[in-house]
Amino acid sequence: AEDTGVRVELAEEDNGRKSTIALRLWVEDPKKLKGKPKDNGAIEFTFDLEKETPEDVAQEMVESGFFHESDVKIVGKSIRDRVALIQWRRSRIR
């Protein structure tokens, strides 16, 4: 996955069965972002693999003031990369 400067990880162990997972996102390299992120903390959130898209979450984070509008794509991509990896691991385990 491309190094976007935004790190996304599982916030808790993935049992491979629940459609909703917990993720944690934080900025590792602020220089990669166009806008100044609001916080330098880690943002934990739940994500429904079946019903939601990474872009939904990225837009909500912008609307909640965590990121500047100009960074919605890079935040969305960072989440998408991690979600794709989780889904790939699940398919491999199945």
């Binding site: 390299d29 880690a42 934990e44 739940t46 909640s64």
Partner: peptide, 27 residues
Amino acid sequence: SLNAQVVHSAGRRFIVSPVPESRLREP
């Protein structure tokens, strides 16, 4: 605003907590 919670109008809860020291990249 660390350890803060923000609930988006769509209902999603964002919980902000400090990034674990071990996860911060070396400058």
